[in-house]
């Protein structure tokens, strides 16, 4: 079990500075972690629960974490930092290697960008990395909206006031 956020942080845009590092989340991955995550994502494919299939068909060393479950880990990691007012806008993953039972995965992130868009929404862009023994397994660029003031609520944005795609 990992340490979860029991307090309720409410990160404001002014609290984030380019170059800031988020606290590390370290988690020992077990077969249960992999299987539980795959089934929670309704991913029934055998490489995420069947050791023999993963090794002899996929050619991997063991069953491995699936992408939707990694996304859920990244979301949890980012919103542990922002608190519930943080609203994900965009995530871009690159899978470089697999995460297997027995690995200790570590999530780390740095703030790459802090800005307010033309609609007045505050955005923080994070470079998040999932590593095992120092090897980068997945990178994820996360764009998360956070309040610009204590009264602001990114979740209230709709239509043109919500512009999550950085390439749009």
């Amino acid at each position: 079990m990992s340490d979860t956020t029991t307090s309720t942080p409410r990160l404001l845009l002014g609290d984030a500075t380019v170059g800031d590092a988020l606290p590390t989340l370290a988690y020992p991955v077990t077969a249960t972690t992999v299987v539980l995550g795959a089934l929670a994502a309704r991913d029934w494919r055998p490489m995420h629960h069947d050791h023999d299939f993963a090794v002899n068909r996929n050619g991997t060393q063991d069953i491995f974490m699936n992408t939707p479950n990694q996304a859920a880990w990244f979301e949890r990691y980012v919103t542990d930092w922002t608190g519930p007012t943080g609203r994900l806008g965009h995530m871009q993953f690159r899978m470089k290697g697999s995460v297997f039972p027995g690995d200790e995965m570590r999530l780390d992130a740095t703030v790459r960008d802090v800005r307010t868009d033309d609609a007045g929404c505050g955005w923080v862009t994070l470079d998040v990395a999932l590593t095992v023994d120092g090897d980068v397994k997945t990178t994820c660029a996360v764009r998360v909206a956070v309040p610009t003031t204590p009264d602001d609520n990114p979740w209230a944005r709709r239509g043109d006031a919500w512009r999550p795609d950085p390439t749009a």
Binding site: M1, T4, T6, L36, G37, A40, N69, R76, T79
Partner: peptide, 16 residues
């Protein structure tokens, strides 16, 4: 129920 199952799988304790 599935929302809680997913949160549980990654120990996401967000009050939201």
């Amino acid at each position: 129920g599935y929302i809680w199952t997913s949160c549980s799988s990654v120990e996401n304790g967000s009050s939201l």
